[in-house]
Design a protein around this nucleic acid. Structure first.
Lengths: 226, 226, 226, 226
DNA sequence: GATGAATGAGGGTTCATTCAT
DNA sequence: CATGAATGAACCCTCATTCAT
């Protein structure tokens, strides 16, 4: 990930440099390919489309990926790995409380998504697939990420900041879905100009404080845990 | 598209009846086809797969749909139309308030989704696609449905039941996303046995009352509308 | 092999008829394909070449053979099966002695080869391949056929018609190779006009009586078995 | 093609020496390449296979051969040239009679084949190909070699050692085919341990004296020349 | 001179679509 | 009206060939 600004002496250098170059080229391809896969169906993206926007030969693509399918699947892996890294970083911070963690997770996650919208979009396309073959893997990755959020919520519950009757998993999933939706469907009619950060803030607040006014009646049933 | 609620008098009944049978067969095909499209990619579902589970000949399929693409797209239309109908029904009810409307919308929507999981899944797959050709149509349908929810929220805001500083669109979208996620990813680790209705209730409550305990500090910023 | 002139009543007929038609079409394809594979290398024969001389669509070819490779390999199988059948028939005859058997084997084998030169040619191309994967099978088939000849020679040795010091396997192999060569390389300069049957006769005689004149000196060593 | 038996005086030695090295490397490549082409089909041998067993770079290969096809075709040429040289040497010997010549031809030919089995094998694969482009050349080369044998047989006939009613061409072709077969299919079941020279001897004897015992009846017809 | 990354023409294969039965 | 054999356009992928290093 971090390009190790290669020290020109010291190492035998060449294989290392090549490997870094290789990895960079690979990542570049994945990200550009995501552009296409985000807006067209897998079968509607031809290899010719890909190499056209990549500016490389067809054969070259096969030096980086065993086939079209593999390239596609790497998009998901790249997206997962980065999100995971981001979330794990926030989860493990000791300097902030659970509320701030959730807010920070929402912010940093959304920031990454904004930068790599297409990767995210491809993930959203693939996740609803039923469990078959590797879609199993996709579901696992999803859970892995969600458990990062859940960890923060759990902490909040233990500290008495969050109500103890909430289903932490359901909460985490709902929050992520809401953020997800906000990033995926940006051209919302009521909010044409961009106040993206405020919107994230607003979503998180919604989950923290709800939509009712103080005078409102408490909704009839409280689930079943109360 | 619109099933012509057959007028029992006037016309020579036979073609009409035939047309109803035709429509029924069509719908059956769409629903069964959704089974496949929900778990495999469009290109991974072959016509041979389809006719196998449908128990009809390849040529027959072409009597009902102009091509594979059309069949696929009808899944989305069918799903949208039914959801829309359900939501519109609740929206127009005069006998219940906004809170109950939201709860009812959530319940009836989810009930439909549970019965037709695959159609819903296909919709979830297609929605994130960027604007290209008919994906524009998909987005419009999405907005149409969301505006049903938003109408209820708006009503709540006008009646002072909901805080006036919430973004009604954002609220609606987030709520639907959360419900959506709960239905799409059913095998959640913390909830192996099925308490589906309670979970929906819980999600709605979350959106209404938030996750904070009374003693919790109010989160730092309140968006920007406050 | 034998087309069972289908009895029009009795059976449910249809699958049987279809199967026969299918088999006929298959065989036709194999034989025509052999035309090309006999004169061009495997890689020089394109599917387009094949369908052009076959007069069928590319997809149709794949209803009969799983791929190009399979089609090619079926040429060998067809050739082997027919030769085998022919040779087995002669071997099992009780009405003629070993000499006549050899002569008849040579004749009938060569007759078949003349009719299906190309299949035979393809076999000649594939047989010299070293043992790898299925070339193992080819070698086995070769041995199977040769053992048909050897059976006749063995019989001759047991009856005292052939010298007991000859290596029957070597004899069989040499005879077949000679016949093979005569059929494969027909346009020999010294024999432009066609006296094919006489030539076979002549080859067999050569193997039976040798080339020496009576007065000739017996060659130095007699192998090592004497 | 012809290794320029370098004239030691005259020219500036260096390019000449280089040329010899070049020729040696070339020959080494041809022989090793034959290893692969003998057991796999032309299209199944990739350039990557070749350079791997050759231990050279892909570009280097192209310094020695204009393309893959040329390399392949050189295998045949190399084999032919050497066989031809060997046979011509024996044919022109004045110190031995026709019987000894045949025996010597068989021996020396087989010895070469044993050392370069793969080249021989490739020749056997290519020879059956019908006349197309350069396969015409292959056939010519075959005839050239066979005519070496025929020369010895002719001599024998003229000297009264061989029967005058044999077809010398047929005889030569059959003999070579038999020897060829013995070398190509070495793992014969009845002869697991190696008595290669004796087997050659035996084949030649078979052609000289036939397989019949003295008491055996003369076969029915004698071809048509008798 | 040697190398192997990049290339893209070419070919095998699939599969949606048609249409004769 | 239903069927599924035949079709060929379209596409993925391989691999011989080139050429900058």
């Amino acid at each position: 990930m971090v390009k190790p600004l290669q020290d020109p002496k010291a190492r035998p250098a060449i294989p290392e440099i090549r490997s870094v170059r290789f990895e960079q080229a690979r990542t570049r391809i994945i990200e550009r390919a995501a552009n296409l896969f985000a807006e067209k169906r897998y079968d509607q993206v031809t290899l010719d489309d890909l190499i056209r926007i990549l500016g490389i030969g067809k054969g070259t693509l096969y030096r980086y990926f065993t086939n079209k399918e593999a390239l596609y699947s790497q998009i998901l892996d790249l997206g997962h790995e980065h999100l995971q890294e981001i979330l794990r970083g926030v989860r493990d911070r000791k300097d902030i409380g659970p509320i701030e963690k959730l807010q920070e997770m929402a912010r940093s996650m959304t920031r990454y998504i904004r930068l790599h919208q297409d990767i995210f979009r491809v993930m959203a396309i693939e996740e609803p697939k039923e469990r078959c073959l590797k879609s199993e893997k996709i579901h696992l990755q999803r859970r892995e990420r969600l458990s990062m959020i859940e960890a923060a919520v759990d902490q909040g519950v233990r500290q008495g900041v969050f109500r103890s009757d909430i289903d932490t998993w359901l909460f985490s999933q709902s929050l992520v879905s809401a953020l997800w939706a906000d990033s995926l469907f940006p051209s919302l009619p009521p909010d044409p100009e961009g106040r993206p950060v405020q919107r994230i803030q607003e979503i998180v607040n919604l989950f923290l404080t709800g939509a009712l006014t103080p005078k409102s009646p408490i909704p009839l049933s409280r689930g079943g845990k109360a």
